[in-house]
Design a protein around this nucleic acid. Structure first.
Lengths: 205, 205
DNA sequence: TCATATATGTGGACATTGTCAACATGAGGG
DNA sequence: CCCTCATGTTGACAATGTCCACATATATGA
């Protein structure tokens, strides 16, 4: 059941794996249904038995990406060797590293227009699950008294935004940096500890 | 010289305008060379006299976008009714508003893979010019003693990242918000005034 | 003024791609 | 053992990007 059977076995999975490989090798645009099918060893229209169209396939790849990202973030969240503030900071680093190391895949996940415009419930849920890791850490930080009392969703959006933005700058080469980890750490810390010399409380949204 | 001449007059400009319209109406994927040509009233291969290929055309559109963005940011920077801290905060708002109001165009500018991968010197310069507006304000803030002494480039990257990230979340609908301006303001201010209750100085990158 | 070179626009042609429809195959249940 | 249905195949077609040879107009210089 591995080489020349008419039926493939688990074509869906094979397609997703091959697509992921192609994306990381040559970018999303290099993924064509035909090339993908050939790589997996099936005829060009076989993928249509598993995905309605190309967008659906790419969306599935993007969802897998979010699942991996969420797992990475969950690891940080459960790292018992760190306190909640350190975990918060470390999570920013982890996020940025993930994005940089999986740049083309990350692009697909985060902003590729075809995937975004079709955004299925499953896709949205995958993205939300990843973000929830961050929000949960913030809540813990609040319980421990380290983090200000603004709504954790809002704070999460702030940190998520900053991490995503940094990742984008790095991926696009608009920000050249020697050490990605150090940069991510600098930014996350500055964000956590404040940017201006004087500190004061301000109204919320 | 406006309706039926064999030669168009300023086809290049007309193509860019039409492409910009199509992008904002139906997204980047709706821009096809043929549709574009038809919209402008020329034959399908005429655009190739002005752009090497489709990517070059889209890159030109993206550059125009950065020019508009830079102009918007420059307006804020030169607003004499605000002090430098307020200008900094306002600039974040202006950036996010620009992105949301020109969502599809913004996508093209910031992360569309075909444009990014080809990124020409002109494209990079346009992006840098916009970012420089932000860095300049930060320098002014430092001179006036409001902003910490970290390298202005680093601080600029931080704020740019956060603004870009927020814009992306909003554009992708991953963050539903009643009032975009208020949210941008909240985030920019929180970033400027610090996120944690205690304040302290930390090492830089 | 007029011929000619050059820039600009046109139409035909072709390869690539996504996708549909009709057909083939084979695994599993009755 | 046969039938059904999920799965895979082949042929076909339309849309698209883009090359090439040709057409046309504008500018240049004699």
């Amino acid at each position: 059941m591995d080489s020349k059977t008419y039926h493939h076995g688990d074509l869906r999975k094979a397609l997703l794996e091959a697509a992921t490989e192609m994306i990381s090798e040559d970018g999303v645009d290099s993924v064509t249904i035909r090339a993908l099918a050939q790589r997996v060893g099936v005829s060009r229209t076989a993928p249509y038995r598993h995905f309605k169209d190309k967008d659906e396939l790419l969306t599935a790849v993007a969802i897998e990406g979010y699942e991996r990202l969420a797992a990475t973030m969950a690891d940080v969240r459960h790292d018992q060797t760190l306190d909640s503030v350190a975990r918060l900071s470390r999570m920013g680093e982890a996020y940025v590293l993930f994005a940089v190391e999986n740049a083309t895949h990350y692009r697909l996940m985060v902003i590729d227009s075809s995937v975004q415009s079709r955004s299925t419930p499953a896709f949205r849920e995958a993205a939300l699950t990843a973000r929830q890791q961050l929000v949960d850490i913030i809540k813990e930080g609040q319980q421990e008294g380290f983090v200000i009392d603004a709504p954790p969703q809002d704070i999460g959006n702030l940190l998520w935004s900053a991490s995503h933005g940094l990742a984008t700058l790095l991926i696009n080469g608009q920000m050249r940096v020697k050490n990605v980890e150090a940069t991510a750490k600098f930014m996350t810390e500055k964000m956590c500890y404040g940017l201006l010399k004087q500190d004061q409380e301000t109204a919320e949204s």
